[in-house]
Simulated scan of single mutants.
Amino acid sequence: MRYSFKPDDCMVITIPLGSIRNARDGQLMPETFTCVFKDAYKVFLKGRPKELGAAQISIGIFVICVGTLIALEYGLSHLMYTLPSALFIASGILTFAAGSSPFMPVVKLSFIFNIISLFWAIAALVICTFMNVGASHQNLSDSKNPMFVGLKVLVCILCGFELILALVLIFWESKAVCRPHFNTLPLITIKQDV
């Protein structure tokens, strides 16, 4: 026979029983006992969402600033892989807000935006790497410029950091968002004094 319910350790109730030998009538069960409840939002807070959200905002602003420098100096086509990094700023704001208040729709929205940010960070890395493959002759001479190469490497490094931040935040937010809502019972532990 299979069990239809299983304890998931979200709620742990510990009931200390008195000694059977020393118990009088009605003295075996205690008047108080402990109950520990693991809140999924509190587990999410262990991932430090405020700090990671602030880091996402900083990375997004820095990528846009560096991308604007590249676009002003070497052509507007480079805004293609830097300007959509405003998504990092939006993800950072939502992550910071999710860490500030236990409002679950904000946590879910932050989770969705971090998944999108993860895919954009991957796409930005690929686009930034292969941007000058089909460039014109004048742009090819610019692509050999050490300043241009350095700025592109900086954008790639920042997108790599955003990729790592998005992965970490997706991990911690999934602990708050993706949790079982049914078929769970509290784990009850009865301890007996000897």
Rank of each mutant, 00 (worst) to 15 (best):
R2V: 10
Y3H: 14
F5K: 08
F5M: 10
K6F: 12
D9K: 11
M11C: 14
V12Q: 12
V12M: 08
P16T: 12
P16S: 12
P16E: 15
S19G: 13
I20W: 09
I20F: 13
G26Y: 09
P30A: 08
F37L: 07
A40W: 06
F44R: 02
L45D: 01
L45F: 00
L45V: 02
R48G: 00
R48A: 09
R48T: 05
E51R: 07
Q56W: 00
Q56A: 09
G60E: 02
G60Q: 03
I61L: 15
F62T: 15
F62N: 08
I64S: 05
V66N: 07
T68I: 11
I70V: 15
L72E: 14
E73H: 09
S77Y: 08
M80F: 13
Y81L: 07
T82S: 15
L83C: 05
I89W: 04
S91T: 08
G92T: 03
G92P: 04
I93Y: 08
I93S: 04
L94Q: 06
F96Y: 15
F96P: 00
A97D: 07
A98D: 02
A98G: 04
G99D: 01
S100K: 10
P102M: 01
M104G: 01
P105L: 06
V107I: 10
K108L: 13
K108T: 13
L109P: 00
L109M: 15
S110K: 01
S110D: 05
F113L: 11
I115G: 09
I115W: 01
W120N: 06
W120Q: 07
W120M: 05
W120S: 02
I122Y: 00
L125C: 10
L125K: 01
C128H: 04
C128I: 07
T129I: 04
M131V: 12
G134Q: 13
G134M: 09
S136L: 04
S136V: 07
H137W: 04
Q138M: 08
N139H: 11
L140V: 02
S141Y: 07
S143R: 03
P146R: 03
K152P: 00
K152C: 09
V155H: 04
C156S: 14
C156L: 12
L158W: 03
F161E: 02
I164M: 07
I164D: 00
A166Q: 02
A166M: 01
V168K: 04
V168P: 00
V168I: 14
V168N: 01
L169G: 01
I170T: 13
I170N: 09
W172S: 11
S174F: 05
K175T: 05
A176T: 04
C178I: 15
H181K: 15
H181Q: 12
H181M: 13
P186V: 07
L187E: 12
I190F: 15
I190E: 11
D193W: 06
V194T: 06
V194E: 13
